[in-house]
Simulated assay, not measured.
Amino acid sequence: MIIDFPLLAGSFLVAVIVGLTGMGGGALMTPMMMLFFNVPPLAAISSDLVASAVMKPIGGYVHLRHGTVNLRLVAWLCAGSVPAAFCGVFLARAFDTEAAAQQAVKYALGVALLLAVAGLVAKAFLAVRERSGAEADIAQISLRPIPTLLVGMIGGATVGISSVGAGSLIIVALLALYPTLKANQLVGTDLVQAVPMVAAAAVGHLLYGDFQLHLTTSLILGSIPGVYLGARISSRAPGAVIRAMLAVVLLASALKLLEVSNQATAWILGGATATATACWYVLRRGRSRPEEQATAAPAPASRPG
């Protein structure tokens, strides 16, 4: 078995980012293989999904032990996501020619990356919301079965087609459906339901013959130490800056996959960066004013003359 050492190094760097931010696995790993190592889209997606199926149960077990998982919510998500993820593999092949299938997957991945950027924005919103204390106990949420089932179906199909969504897209939808859940509860619930979902998508790709053992082995060997290192660094690194950098990388990758011209890409990235900076400044000022008022010393009472 031949190990692809450049790919191993690339997967290590991506895994460090995943460990730092908790997001970006499929959203970065698959485009990296396509754009820098010329791996065909379906083979890149297949290898990434099989590698994720090996690693995700570890994180899911940790969240289960810490009580940050709603198993009823997991059950309804899986009811939609598992069959949809398996079928998504075959949706990617519902074209007349191999070239058309590869092109369709490439465009689908570009759209999924744009949605992943929205996931990072939602995660930033989560950080702001947690400071305000608007949270609920994970066992006390009011379950919404049908919308949750639909979220699982859409997220599973997206993962089966593009490998993107298990750690970002579904969280955006869960945030809209259950806005009072804490960030770690959203992440934990999504991660546990992603274990059977990613496994179903991986099985579909294995059956369809897109799996390449040497690619997956290189991904796993690079990802395991990278995730560990990223998680160790995350306690000291500025998370907001890292998430902003990740958003720029995802947006640039999406535009590249969608075949946007270099000039247009530069304008879009510049405009997005300027907008994000302005929004960050406004949010920071909005948070600092209540804190300043709360910590301001009261004026001394005047003594009667």
Results as ranks from 00 to 15, higher is better:
10 G>V: 05
138 I>V: 12
6 P>Y: 08
115 L>H: 09
215 L>G: 02
20 L>H: 02
163 S>P: 08
75 A>R: 13
165 G>M: 11
238 P>Y: 09
184 N>R: 10
94 A>Y: 05
185 Q>P: 01
44 A>S: 10
195 V>Y: 05
182 K>S: 12
28 L>I: 14
245 M>T: 12
95 F>T: 07
37 F>W: 13
301 A>M: 13
292 E>C: 07
183 A>R: 01
212 Q>D: 07
141 I>Q: 10
37 F>Q: 07
112 A>W: 09
8 L>E: 13
80 G>A: 06
184 N>V: 12
296 A>R: 10
100 A>T: 08
292 E>D: 09
37 F>P: 00
72 R>V: 12
168 S>D: 12
123 K>W: 08
123 K>L: 15
236 R>Y: 11
113 L>N: 10
127 A>L: 08
227 V>H: 05
4 D>A: 10
51 A>W: 07
175 L>W: 09
173 A>N: 07
216 T>K: 08
85 A>D: 01
141 I>P: 05
254 A>C: 14
201 A>F: 02
128 V>A: 13
198 V>P: 01
265 T>K: 09
300 P>H: 14
187 V>E: 05
40 P>W: 08
270 G>T: 06
46 S>L: 06
220 I>A: 14
124 A>R: 13
184 N>F: 01
235 S>F: 10
161 I>Q: 02
232 R>S: 02
149 L>R: 10
11 S>W: 02
91 L>S: 02
207 L>I: 08
184 N>W: 00
151 V>T: 09
63 H>E: 04
96 D>I: 00
55 M>Y: 11
207 L>N: 00
25 G>Q: 04
149 L>N: 05
3 I>R: 08
147 P>M: 03
172 V>Y: 03
